[in-house]
Design a protein around this nucleic acid. Structure first.
Lengths: 319, 319
DNA sequence: ACGTTTATAATCGTTGTGACTATAAGGGGT
DNA sequence: ACCCCTTATAGTCACAACGATTATAAACGT
């Protein structure tokens, strides 16, 4: 192998450069309660395990670990990011985390022990704007962020911190941007307002921190997944990976709203979906919700192949 | 560390699961000749090297290797993808390739030995549509792709292959989509129409293959970078990383055209750039190109912080 | 019968943007 | 000096996308 790669200089094959690669999965589903993530340890961690020689590929290794730990088979998979960051260094060993996003339907509730579905918004209570801006933003986060900003040494840093907080959390009359989920989490981390940022720190005085945390950097990875998914549903029809075979347009809309954390105008949503020919009527109807029975639709699969770029643009409120 | 990660089951710390992680850089610049990539070995490989204990992070490791091998300091860096695929398996050792995209200006031509800038389109001659569709598509690729499609066993596969080829290469009256650069390369790989796909194969009869190749999967990584960059310039103002401090709007347009491989309507481009307030006039002008002297602009940096989503949407020809 | 809920259709006005035309300002050749 | 070339810059036009709103239809419950 190395002979074939002659160009490398100073390359030393040996144990000194070996690393341990972890595969971490964010498995997402949506149910009536909202968007969910598959967890182990009662919501304290994401399914994960080391990449091993026996695995044919990164993806198959990930599938194996998730199925072993939760019994959940995975369909759609997409690579998220590879981390090799802070506080994950061992003696003469480094850990690389390769994270994936998986979309599935919460059906096959195999009784596989330690798994459980947890709502996104238990971990990020400030991300759900479906009923307007959640109180936690103005009541808890804003004062603490301002306090953090004003604690900076020089004026330029204070100004910059206030601006970043305002952009991320839609303060000072700015518009909320649901895709900034990761930036919001990173900002709270930087401001030491999440539990993870206090680990190993001297401040044993743990004031109440917003949102439930996870081990290691799992919550950060979850934030990465949320941001990616919220962005992707706008230009690729990935929502359908989360839908049952037959669904009504309102169910589809509720799913998109659950993911994006904000409400959508109903007629516009219907028009967008229908004119893009992403779905087709089945003829059947359902009347389980009360009100006029709704048409049942099915995803129009061939569209995926023909139009690789088209997607489900979300009709979201203008700023 | 492992105690903190109690959830893992069947986890075995030991040499058996160790892997070697390679960092690979696609360093992009644009000059008068077009879009370029930084290479070593006379264009045969991308700068790369193993992730080592001494590196503080993945990014710093990458910077170190690129600077060591080419003398090029890196500015903007963005992670591309992590591969652990085919034919990169050694005995009891696996190689993970973590690839990055870097944008820079081709200025500091330090005389660092084995580096050289190579045009994208030497490796992907079918990707440059600035002067209309290149002849290679219809004259060479199309007949071979059809031959490959018709070589399938069953009719469904034949149909599917023809459709995929038509979508990727804009056959049968379809519109060219510059963002499908990676899919095109993968399709050619699957059809055994690129040199990499024939390595180790029995077919020693190497018919002339389109485009220059690289060692290992470096050309695939380059294709990934091109696709990512072509997509990203449409919604994030990353082009400016490739521009000198002062530039004219036409220079900016030529850069975008070089990257996307297609021409842009001039008035529309100017309107888009100016109304988004991405640039500001400096007052100075230049008259080096002949014709009326052009205003020199400068990137409006503050915009980056205020509008994290806004970008340089490309006014591209409608389908 | 009436109100409530949901589904479905239609309309209006603004914005975005692709395509095109026109005018201005320089240089070089004859 | 004039013409012609090249490039810069401004303006127009038409259509498509889309956010917001209203209206009508079809079920159920009281």
């Amino acid at each position: 192998m190395d002979q074939a790669k002659g160009p490398r200089k100073g390359r030393a094959i040996g144990k000194t450069n070996d690393v341990n690669a972890d595969l971490i999965a964010v498995v997402v589903a949506v149910n009536d309660a909202g968007p969910c993530v598959l967890t182990i340890e009662e919501g304290g961690a994401l399914p994960s395990g080391p990449f091993e020689l026996a695995h044919r590929s990164l993806q198959s290794g990930l599938r194996a670990w998730v199925e072993l730990q939760t019994g959940q088979p995975l369909g759609y998979i997409e690579q998220l990011y590879t981390f090799a960051d802070r506080d994950r260094v061992g003696a003469n060993q480094r850990v690389i985390s390769i994270s994936y996003l998986a979309l599935t339907r919460e059906e096959d509730t195999g009784a596989s022990g330690r798994r459980s579905w947890a709502s996104w918004y238990d971990y990020f209570p400030w991300e759900d704007h479906r009923s307007g801006r959640p109180p936690i933003v103005l009541e808890e986060l804003r004062p603490r962020l301002i306090e953090w900003a004003d604690g900076a040494d020089d004026g330029a840093t204070r100004f910059d911190r206030r601006r970043r907080a305002a952009v991320a959390f839609a303060l000072d009359g700015r518009a909320w941007n649901e895709e900034l989920a990761l930036q919001r989490y990173e900002l709270l981390y930087e401001a030491t307002l999440v539990e993870e940022a206090k680990r190993g720190g001297v401040s044993a005085i743990l004031a109440s921190v917003p949102g439930r945390s996870m081990i290691a950097d799992h919550r950060r990875i979850l934030a990465t997944a949320i941001a990616r998914l919220r962005s992707k549903i706008k230009y690729r029809p990935v929502v359908f990976e989360l839908m049952p075979p037959l669904f009504t347009l309102l169910q589809l809309q509720r799913t998109v709203e659950a993911l994006s954390g904000r409400l959508i105008n109903k007629p516009n949503f219907r028009r967008l979906i229908e004119q893009q020919e992403l779905v087709e009527k089945t003829g059947a109807t359902t009347a389980e919700t009360g009100g006029r029975p709704a048409q049942l639709y099915r995803f129009h699969h061939t569209i995926l192949d023909e139009r690789p770029v088209a997607g489900t643009k979300l009709p979201l409120a203008r700023a």
